[in-house]
Nucleic acid binder design. Sequence first.
DNA 1: CTGGGCGTTTGTCAAATACAAACACCTATG
DNA 2: CATAGGTGTTTGTATTTGACAAACGCCCAG
Lengths: 271, 271
Amino acid sequence: MADEPTTGSPRTLKTVSRAFDVVRALEELDGARVTELANHLDLSKSVVYNYLSTLRAEKFVVKEGDTYQLSLQFLLVGEYVRYQNILYRIGKPEIEELAEKTGEYAHLATEQHGLGVNLYKVSGEKAVGSDYQVNKLQRADYLHFSATGKAILAHLPKERVEWIIDQYGLPGKTEATITTREELFEELETIRDRGYSLNDEEEIKGLQAIGAPVTNRHGRVLGSISVSGPVRRMKQPEYHEQLIESVVNTANVIEVNVNMEESDDDFPTFS
Amino acid sequence: MADEPTTGSPRTLKTVSRAFDVVRALEELDGARVTELANHLDLSKSVVYNYLSTLRAEKFVVKEGDTYQLSLQFLLVGEYVRYQNILYRIGKPEIEELAEKTGEYAHLATEQHGLGVNLYKVSGEKAVGSDYQVNKLQRADYLHFSATGKAILAHLPKERVEWIIDQYGLPGKTEATITTREELFEELETIRDRGYSLNDEEEIKGLQAIGAPVTNRHGRVLGSISVSGPVRRMKQPEYHEQLIESVVNTANVIEVNVNMEESDDDFPTFS
DNA sequence: CTGGGCGTTTGTCAAATACAAACACCTATG
DNA sequence: CATAGGTGTTTGTATTTGACAAACGCCCAG
């Protein structure tokens, strides 16, 4: 209705965007019926019905009785994407070993669209937490308040970090969260200097994490790893040093293996 | 299999379908550039460019240099969908225990759109196979030649089984695969009678699997589990009986727990 | 310096979608 | 048992919106 000037650059297809609005709504509502979705999205029933029918024909949505749900197709495609990721393929067993050795939670993360995504999580023996925490990869989250995130930020080009901050800001999570540019850039330099990152109750009160980046041979950061646990335990001096050693060492092992494999990866895709 | 005349009941949105064509092409090609995709999909460059831009704006695609890839967004949504599935939430730890106890591969599967989807896999100590096999959930596959699939089919309404056969046929995979309706329906009755299913080299030569269904209190089948291993080992009489016992027992435990949690309404399922 | 490859942008017309209203179906309830 | 109000689904139609080809700018190799 309002005359949007035909926005110059990339012409975005509204029909496709709306399809993903439907997907997001189905996620938010944990499945929904036609009318419910129509209200939620401010579209007419018939339009929503057509989107759902199409998504269903594409097998990304299932209908159970009268309610529509996202289908496991997302999981299948998602697992494919994860398996394509070299950091995941190489890092997974190493992270498992790290969790076993330290007994703490271990994480493998990467960056996408300026946010952090966990590729894999394992909990060691000492790690106690809700089943939910361990089993669910939560949504993409800010990079500036996690150990994995800060390790990544520290090795991203400065202009990219600036872009990310412009895009998402630096929202606080606890009293310890870094929320200003200057502080953050200082922190990132410290991280680069000492080779590991620390999340000192900046995300969750009582939780500390130690992270280290994984970069490829060209200096590009592929992602990062971390271990985390209760501050009380994590802060004991000798234990702390030991953990840093383990994390940095594991990151190093992954790095070497990734770079050995990636030499073949520079070829253009065949046919 | 022929195209439907456009005038039909559910009006399907071509723009949305094409967006998913792009997604599938990106999966097939392991990422691609604009021109490559345009050729692959028989669309003009500019059109493909617009689809990619839109998918990127929606964060389901990332651009690395000049090549476009599916993003981890699929994994995040997929993990959400999996976690929504009660069979996964309840079954996962039980399947892990089953794999540990038996030492074999253990699977947790469900049905969607008439095909089988693995929700979870674990490999026990004795199970040796390629890393790939274990780590990757492959695409949705036929139900009629796996132990999990047959256990599911055996407890689906007959008309639904008919629909599935009409839709996908009964393609052979090995010499042992069941490829006729009559044989299959007989087999399904046997499975119902004895309470477990057997895949005797019907999918992969040399591999046997034992499966059992998980149904809810209304008799609707939610999915199934299985263990699998080399025929030589699996066929040893006492071991065989022991495995059946373990599988049926685990399925039962999951069933009880699911039904305790599922106090609410349930709808009959359609595709 | 030049040609051909690429990704991106633009103008235009036809096609594909949004909308509302009608339809069919349920299941509560007076 | 009929009716009212709630679904999901279908249809006709106006027009928004996406498809196309051609042009643009860029980069690299010959």
